[in-house]
């Protein structure tokens, strides 16, 4: 069972991300968080194998969330995907610099997201 945390404030986008990731070949359990704070609350409850986050959210932004995860020993190994409308090179650079493993621009291609997720999940289980 692979556990995925989706952090996204738009309900439609969240539901679409969840729907896309439900179709990985592996069995997945998806947790949806509608804000950065909610994500912070979810994190200690389960061991996630993948986090997918938006950038612009009402409380803390996705970059701050990435920074938090990467600076925390408990979470630093969780693969991270940013999916955002912020398509500027600088944001992309920032996200990757902070340690995100992939950066997808909305609208994303579901097959690409699934492929990215599959790769990251495989890497992670291989490493252990």
């Amino acid at each position: 069972m692979q556990r995925i945390l989706i952090v996204e404030d738009s309900a439609t986008m969240r539901s679409l991300l969840a729907s896309t990731l439900e179709d990985l070949d592996a069995a997945v359990k998806i947790t949806e968080a509608s804000s950065g704070f909610e994500a912070l609350r979810c994190l200690p409850r389960e061991e996630y194998d993948l986090v997918v986050t938006d950038i612009n959210m009402p409380d803390i932004n996705g970059l701050e969330l990435v920074s938090f995860l990467k600076n925390n020993d408990a979470y630093s190994k969780i693969p991270l995907v940013i999916v955002s409308t912020e398509g500027s090179d600088r944001d992309r650079e920032k996200g990757l610099e902070l340690g995100a493993d992939a950066y997808l621009v909305k609208p994303f291609d579901p097959e690409v997201l699934r492929q990215v997720a599959r790769d990251l999940l495989a890497d992670e289980s291989g490493a252990e």
Partner: peptide
């Protein structure tokens, strides 16, 4: 979970 309130509200 997804229904939880957020700061924007």
């Amino acid at each position: 979970m997804s229904e939880a309130g957020s700061a924007s509200e």
